[in-house]
Protein backbone atom coordinates (compact mmCIF):
# COMPACT_ATOMS: atom_id res chain seq x y z
CA UNK A 1 0.00 0.00 0.00
CA UNK A 2 1.33 3.41 -0.94
CA UNK A 3 1.78 6.13 1.71
CA UNK A 4 -0.64 8.26 -0.26
CA UNK A 5 -3.43 5.74 0.34
CA UNK A 6 -3.02 6.17 4.10
CA UNK A 7 -2.30 9.89 4.25
CA UNK A 8 -5.21 11.07 2.10
CA UNK A 9 -7.98 9.41 4.16
CA UNK A 10 -6.20 10.34 7.40
CA UNK A 11 -6.10 14.01 6.42
CA UNK A 12 -9.82 13.79 5.53
CA UNK A 13 -10.60 12.44 9.03
CA UNK A 14 -8.57 15.17 10.72
CA UNK A 15 -10.27 17.87 8.62
CA UNK A 16 -13.64 16.38 9.59
CA UNK A 17 -12.79 16.43 13.33
CA UNK A 18 -11.52 20.02 13.16
CA UNK A 19 -14.65 21.13 11.32
CA UNK A 20 -16.81 19.39 13.93
CA UNK A 21 -14.91 21.00 16.80
CA UNK A 22 -15.13 24.41 15.12
CA UNK A 23 -18.87 24.06 14.47
CA UNK A 24 -19.63 23.29 18.13
CA UNK A 25 -17.34 26.13 19.27
CA UNK A 26 -18.83 28.72 16.86
CA UNK A 27 -22.43 27.79 17.64
CA UNK A 28 -21.65 27.70 21.36
CA UNK A 29 -23.54 24.42 21.80
CA UNK A 30 -23.45 22.83 25.27
CA UNK A 31 -22.27 19.21 25.27
CA UNK A 32 -25.79 17.82 25.87
CA UNK A 33 -26.82 19.33 22.56
CA UNK A 34 -23.75 18.36 20.59
CA UNK A 35 -20.55 17.03 22.10
CA UNK A 36 -17.32 18.08 20.41
CA UNK A 37 -14.31 15.85 19.71
CA UNK A 38 -12.45 17.44 22.65
CA UNK A 39 -15.27 16.26 24.98
CA UNK A 40 -14.76 12.70 23.78
CA UNK A 41 -11.20 12.30 24.97
CA UNK A 42 -12.12 12.46 28.71
CA UNK A 43 -14.99 10.03 28.03
CA UNK A 44 -12.62 7.53 26.45
CA UNK A 45 -10.12 8.01 29.27
CA UNK A 46 -12.72 7.39 31.95
CA UNK A 47 -14.35 4.34 30.37
CA UNK A 48 -11.39 2.86 28.50
CA UNK A 49 -11.79 -0.59 30.08
CA UNK A 50 -15.51 -0.63 29.32
CA UNK A 51 -14.92 0.42 25.73
CA UNK A 52 -12.53 -2.48 25.22
CA UNK A 53 -14.78 -5.18 26.71
CA UNK A 54 -18.02 -3.78 25.26
CA UNK A 55 -16.38 -3.11 21.92
CA UNK A 56 -15.19 -6.70 21.79
CA UNK A 57 -18.74 -7.91 22.64
CA UNK A 58 -20.22 -5.90 19.80
CA UNK A 59 -17.50 -6.91 17.38
CA UNK A 60 -17.66 -10.67 17.87
CA UNK A 61 -21.45 -10.78 17.78
CA UNK A 62 -21.51 -8.74 14.59
CA UNK A 63 -18.92 -10.98 12.99
CA UNK A 64 -20.78 -14.11 14.15
CA UNK A 65 -24.01 -12.74 12.66
CA UNK A 66 -22.18 -11.90 9.44
CA UNK A 67 -20.63 -15.36 9.15
CA UNK A 68 -24.08 -16.93 9.56
CA UNK A 69 -25.47 -14.46 7.02
CA UNK A 70 -22.77 -15.43 4.53
CA UNK A 71 -23.37 -19.17 4.98
CA UNK A 72 -27.15 -18.93 4.84
CA UNK A 73 -27.21 -16.13 2.25
CA UNK A 74 -24.89 -17.98 -0.14
CA UNK A 75 -26.87 -21.21 0.25
CA UNK A 76 -30.16 -19.42 -0.36
CA UNK A 77 -28.65 -17.48 -3.27
CA UNK A 78 -27.43 -20.72 -4.84
CA UNK A 79 -30.86 -22.32 -4.54
CA UNK A 80 -32.50 -19.29 -6.14
CA UNK A 81 -29.74 -18.84 -8.72
CA UNK A 82 -29.91 -22.38 -10.04
CA UNK A 83 -33.66 -23.03 -9.87
CA UNK A 84 -36.17 -20.76 -11.51
CA UNK A 85 -38.98 -22.35 -9.53
CA UNK A 86 -37.25 -21.72 -6.23
CA UNK A 87 -36.52 -18.15 -7.29
CA UNK A 88 -40.18 -17.52 -8.11
CA UNK A 89 -41.23 -19.18 -4.85
CA UNK A 90 -38.76 -17.50 -2.51
CA UNK A 91 -38.41 -13.96 -3.83
CA UNK A 92 -41.75 -12.58 -2.55
CA UNK A 93 -41.14 -14.16 0.87
CA UNK A 94 -37.65 -12.77 1.01
CA UNK A 95 -38.63 -9.29 -0.09
CA UNK A 96 -41.49 -9.25 2.41
CA UNK A 97 -39.20 -10.39 5.17
CA UNK A 98 -36.69 -7.71 4.27
CA UNK A 99 -39.35 -5.01 4.11
CA UNK A 100 -40.29 -5.49 7.77
CA UNK A 101 -38.32 -2.84 9.70
CA UNK A 102 -35.89 -4.74 11.89
CA UNK A 103 -36.42 -2.22 14.70
CA UNK A 104 -39.89 -3.75 15.10
CA UNK A 105 -38.51 -7.29 15.13
CA UNK A 106 -35.90 -6.53 17.78
CA UNK A 107 -38.31 -6.36 20.78
CA UNK A 108 -40.02 -9.54 19.60
CA UNK A 109 -36.75 -11.45 19.35
CA UNK A 110 -35.58 -9.91 22.64
CA UNK A 111 -38.68 -11.32 24.35
CA UNK A 112 -38.64 -14.60 22.48
CA UNK A 113 -35.13 -15.44 23.65
CA UNK A 114 -35.08 -13.43 26.84
CA UNK A 115 -31.90 -14.04 28.79
CA UNK A 116 -30.08 -15.43 25.75
CA UNK A 117 -28.45 -12.12 25.08
CA UNK A 118 -25.62 -13.33 22.88
CA UNK A 119 -27.94 -15.50 20.86
CA UNK A 120 -30.60 -12.91 20.12
CA UNK A 121 -28.01 -10.25 19.26
CA UNK A 122 -26.28 -12.53 16.78
CA UNK A 123 -29.70 -13.52 15.43
CA UNK A 124 -30.69 -9.92 14.67
CA UNK A 125 -27.30 -9.16 13.11
CA UNK A 126 -27.81 -12.22 10.92
CA UNK A 127 -31.43 -11.43 10.00
CA UNK A 128 -30.65 -7.90 8.94
CA UNK A 129 -27.62 -8.75 6.81
CA UNK A 130 -28.28 -11.95 4.86
CA UNK A 131 -30.68 -10.40 2.33
CA UNK A 132 -28.19 -8.50 0.15
CA UNK A 133 -25.90 -11.54 0.13
CA UNK A 134 -28.64 -13.94 -0.97
CA UNK A 135 -29.85 -11.56 -3.68
CA UNK A 136 -26.37 -10.87 -5.06
CA UNK A 137 -25.42 -14.54 -5.24
CA UNK A 138 -28.71 -15.49 -6.88
CA UNK A 139 -28.38 -12.71 -9.47
CA UNK A 140 -24.73 -13.56 -10.07
CA UNK A 141 -25.59 -17.18 -10.76
CA UNK A 142 -28.74 -16.62 -12.80
CA UNK A 143 -27.06 -14.07 -15.07
CA UNK A 144 -24.17 -16.38 -15.98
CA UNK A 145 -23.97 -16.30 -19.78
CA UNK A 146 -25.04 -19.66 -21.23
CA UNK A 147 -21.83 -19.90 -23.26
CA UNK A 148 -19.80 -20.24 -20.04
CA UNK A 149 -21.89 -23.24 -19.08
CA UNK A 150 -21.74 -24.66 -22.62
CA UNK A 151 -17.94 -24.48 -22.78
CA UNK A 152 -17.67 -26.75 -19.73
CA UNK A 153 -20.74 -28.88 -20.36
CA UNK A 154 -19.57 -29.77 -23.86
CA UNK A 155 -16.45 -31.21 -22.22
CA UNK A 156 -18.59 -33.42 -20.02
CA UNK A 157 -18.17 -31.37 -16.83
CA UNK A 158 -20.60 -31.98 -13.95
CA UNK A 159 -22.81 -29.26 -12.48
CA UNK A 160 -20.54 -29.17 -9.42
CA UNK A 161 -17.46 -28.60 -11.59
CA UNK A 162 -19.24 -25.80 -13.44
CA UNK A 163 -20.12 -24.23 -10.11
CA UNK A 164 -16.59 -24.37 -8.67
CA UNK A 165 -14.72 -23.46 -11.84
CA UNK A 166 -17.00 -20.76 -13.22
CA UNK A 167 -20.17 -19.81 -11.38
CA UNK A 168 -18.58 -19.27 -7.97
CA UNK A 169 -15.56 -17.18 -9.04
CA UNK A 170 -17.69 -15.20 -11.47
CA UNK A 171 -20.12 -14.29 -8.67
CA UNK A 172 -17.42 -13.16 -6.23
CA UNK A 173 -17.37 -9.45 -7.21
CA UNK A 174 -21.14 -9.18 -6.66
CA UNK A 175 -20.81 -11.16 -3.45
CA UNK A 176 -18.18 -8.82 -2.01
CA UNK A 177 -20.23 -5.78 -3.06
CA UNK A 178 -23.11 -7.21 -1.04
CA UNK A 179 -20.85 -8.13 1.87
CA UNK A 180 -19.78 -4.49 2.20
CA UNK A 181 -23.43 -3.50 2.56
CA UNK A 182 -24.03 -6.42 4.92
CA UNK A 183 -21.19 -5.37 7.27
CA UNK A 184 -22.81 -2.03 8.10
CA UNK A 185 -26.26 -3.61 8.30
CA UNK A 186 -25.00 -6.23 10.75
CA UNK A 187 -23.63 -3.47 13.00
CA UNK A 188 -27.03 -1.80 12.99
CA UNK A 189 -28.64 -5.12 13.96
CA UNK A 190 -26.22 -5.80 16.80
CA UNK A 191 -26.63 -2.32 18.26
CA UNK A 192 -30.40 -2.27 18.01
CA UNK A 193 -30.52 -5.39 20.14
CA UNK A 194 -27.87 -4.19 22.55
CA UNK A 195 -29.80 -0.96 23.14
CA UNK A 196 -33.23 -2.53 23.49
CA UNK A 197 -32.31 -5.63 25.45
CA UNK A 198 -32.48 -5.18 29.24
CA UNK A 199 -29.16 -5.75 31.03
CA UNK A 200 -27.50 -5.80 27.68
CA UNK A 201 -23.84 -5.78 26.93
CA UNK A 202 -21.82 -4.34 24.11
CA UNK A 203 -21.42 -0.79 22.81
CA UNK A 204 -25.20 -0.46 22.42
CA UNK A 205 -25.64 -1.08 26.15
CA UNK A 206 -22.88 1.43 26.90
CA UNK A 207 -24.73 3.94 24.75
CA UNK A 208 -27.94 3.20 26.66
CA UNK A 209 -26.21 3.71 30.01
CA UNK A 210 -24.87 7.04 28.75
CA UNK A 211 -28.46 8.00 27.97
CA UNK A 212 -29.69 6.88 31.39
CA UNK A 213 -26.96 8.83 33.18
CA UNK A 214 -27.23 11.89 30.92
CA UNK A 215 -23.57 11.37 30.00
CA UNK A 216 -23.78 12.90 26.54
CA UNK A 217 -20.08 12.83 25.72
CA UNK A 218 -20.16 9.08 26.44
CA UNK A 219 -23.01 8.62 23.94
CA UNK A 220 -21.07 10.45 21.26
CA UNK A 221 -17.94 8.50 22.16
CA UNK A 222 -19.88 5.25 21.57
CA UNK A 223 -21.00 6.48 18.17
CA UNK A 224 -17.42 7.21 17.18
CA UNK A 225 -16.27 3.83 18.51
CA UNK A 226 -18.99 2.15 16.42
CA UNK A 227 -17.90 4.09 13.36
CA UNK A 228 -14.33 2.97 14.00
CA UNK A 229 -15.31 -0.72 14.28
CA UNK A 230 -17.41 -0.36 11.14
CA UNK A 231 -14.44 1.04 9.24
CA UNK A 232 -12.16 -1.76 10.48
CA UNK A 233 -14.59 -4.52 9.42
CA UNK A 234 -15.27 -2.80 6.11
CA UNK A 235 -11.60 -2.69 5.23
CA UNK A 236 -11.15 -6.31 6.24
CA UNK A 237 -13.82 -7.11 3.65
CA UNK A 238 -12.02 -4.89 1.13
CA UNK A 239 -8.78 -6.78 1.79
CA UNK A 240 -10.56 -10.11 1.27
CA UNK A 241 -12.09 -8.76 -1.91
CA UNK A 242 -8.68 -7.72 -3.21
CA UNK A 243 -7.34 -11.20 -2.49
CA UNK A 244 -10.17 -13.22 -3.97
CA UNK A 245 -11.76 -10.94 -6.55
CA UNK A 246 -8.99 -8.48 -7.30
CA UNK A 247 -9.18 -9.47 -10.98
CA UNK A 248 -12.50 -7.64 -11.28
CA UNK A 249 -10.92 -4.29 -10.41
CA UNK A 250 -10.13 -2.50 -13.68
CA UNK A 251 -8.85 0.71 -12.13
CA UNK A 252 -5.41 -0.64 -11.18
Amino acid sequence: MKARQIIVPLVAVIVFLIAWEALVWIMGWPNYKMASPSDLIPAYERYWGLFLTMGWQTLWRTVAGLVLAVIFGVALGMVMGFSRTMRDALYPLLVGFNAVPKATVVPIVALMFVGWHDFNTVLIAFMISFFPIAVSVSIGLSTLEPEYRDILRSLGASQATIFWKIALPKTLPEFFGALKVAVTLAFIGTNLMEIVSPHGRGLGALFDSGKTNSDYPLMFAVLIALAFLGIVLYYIVVALEKTFAGWADRTV
Binding site: E145, E147, Y148, I166, K170, W247
Partner: peptide
Protein backbone atom coordinates in the same frame (compact mmCIF):
# COMPACT_ATOMS: atom_id res chain seq x y z
CA UNK B 1 -18.90 -15.02 -30.85
CA UNK B 2 -18.48 -14.10 -27.18
CA UNK B 3 -14.99 -15.39 -26.31
CA UNK B 4 -16.14 -16.23 -22.71
CA UNK B 5 -12.67 -16.20 -21.23
CA UNK B 6 -12.55 -16.47 -17.44
CA UNK B 7 -11.53 -13.02 -16.21
CA UNK B 8 -9.86 -14.30 -13.06
Amino acid sequence: QNPVLLEW
